[in-house]
């Protein structure tokens, strides 16, 4: 196989909680390759949130190696991390995390503001991406004028608009009813088919089932890393 986008070797993350050391991650190694569709699973307290924060460059490991496209993330400062999040990672959150006062269009434009894209190009790209997720007719609506499913689609458009190397989704259906959840998972399937690399962090087996590879984490360690025979690889 080709070179991995993400190369993690023996990383650990230790939090200092008032003198007490909490080992959220103990020893995790993982390679993620282009156009993979991975589910990271684990019960609450397993370290999967920490894993997601580190994968998303929101946090850095205490020890071990984390290479993102060959760049050493562990040595990056705040600004480098912000830049890599901006360019390489598209986040989709459980609670959508849209800016409430901004329209769908402005929300999708936001990451492009931080990459210094001109106003007109920002607009064009945001419109195109919103159309791709089926929200061409909802662009001027504010989040509170949209349904949960539509909000998550806005969030997905926002994740896609910078053409990132990976899409990192944290419980993307957690706040949706099951029917809408299925729609959103279908959209991820669609995105994967178009060549995107997708990482879904979840505790639901139903959601993980869509992925082609399932990494289970327990007590800060990788419990299992298996391909998913059930998923229909097109």
């Amino acid at each position: 196989m080709n070179t991995p986008i993400i190369n993690i070797e023996h990383i650990a993350r230790v939090y200092d909680m008032g003198g007490e050391k909490v080992h959220a991650l103990r020893d995790v190694s993982l390679n993620i390759y282009p156009n993979e569709y991975i589910a990271i699973m684990g019960p609450s307290g397993s370290g999967k949130s920490t894993m997601m924060n580190i994968l998303g460059c929101l946090d850095t490991p205490s020890s071990g190696i984390y290479n993102f496209k060959g760049l050493d993330v562990k040595e990056m400062d705040d600004n480098d991390l912000a830049e890599i999040r901006n360019r390489e990672i598209g986040f989709v959150f459980q609670t959508f995390n849209l800016l409430p006062r901004a329209s769908a269009l402005k929300n999708v434009e936001l990451p492009l503001v931080y990459s210094g894209v001109s106003r007109s190009e920002r607009r064009d790209r945001a419109i195109k991406t919103l159309e791709e997720v089926g929200l061409g007719d909802r662009m001027q609506h504010k989040p509170n004028e949209l349904s949960g499913g539509q909000r998550q689609r806005v969030a997905i458009a926002r994740a896609l608009v910078t053409k990132p190397s990976i899409i990192l989704a944290d419980e993307p259906t957690g706040n949706l009813d099951s029917k809408t959840g299925v729609e959103i998972m279908r959209l991820f399937q669609e995105l994967w088919k178009r060549g995107n690399t997708i990482i879904v962090v979840t505790h639901e087996e139903d959601i993980a089932r869509h992925a082609h590879r399932i990494v289970r984490i327990r007590d800060g360690k990788v419990e299992s890393d298996t391909t998913n025979p059930q998923s229909a690889i097109a």
């Binding site: 705040d78 600004n79 912000a82 830049e83 901006n86 986040f91 995390n97 990451p111 931080y114 926002r158």
Partner: peptide, 16 residues
């Protein structure tokens, strides 16, 4: 605070 978190996650630097 939440908005600040969102902006930072999307690539806003400290300076921004």
């Amino acid at each position: 605070t939440k908005e600040i978190g969102i902006r930072k996650a999307l690539g806003a630097t400290r300076t921004s």
